[in-house]
Amino acid sequence: MDAPAIPFDPSSLQRLFDARIGHGGMLGVRYERHAADWCELALPYDARLIGQPDTGVMASGAIIALMDMATSCAVWIRRGGFVPQATLDLRVDYLRPATPGRTVIGRGECYRLTRSIAFVRGQAHDGDADDPLAHVAGTFMFTGTGA
């Protein structure tokens, strides 16, 4: 596996998000922190993302988007650079509803990397990492010719 040509610095994502570019920018996602094989992003509570108007609970689709981004970033961090990839599948277990008003933190981890596939998992919580609200597992396929 050759080193990717395009370096990837997760903290530079914040500039994209701040410019409100794309789906991540629209959601208001923020970069939090990262290490060798994981990345943490934050999704602040926003009335525009409500999925259940009677309770004010955030739409679960927004949680999927957050975890898709956090796990993607974990892959690029572990690969040591940006490589084009396509999501093959993503499974989300909703352990409990997100608490209205609270920022959701999503941590994505890339726990296995092969020549063409990245295996990821992650959890989301809204303040207490020991009380997660969602658990995800998924796979990405590298789509570039040099992947």
């Binding site: 991540g24 679960s60 689709g61 988007a65 957050l66 981004m69």
Partner: peptide, 22 residues
């Protein structure tokens, strides 16, 4: 539109998931 774009030229997987869930 801009709200659902991922990498240039493509929909974001999260937006597709949101649509499927709706």
């Amino acid at each position: 539109g801009g709200a659902v774009i991922g990498r240039p030229g493509f929909l974001h997987g999260g937006a597709i998931a949101g649509l499927l869930e709706m």
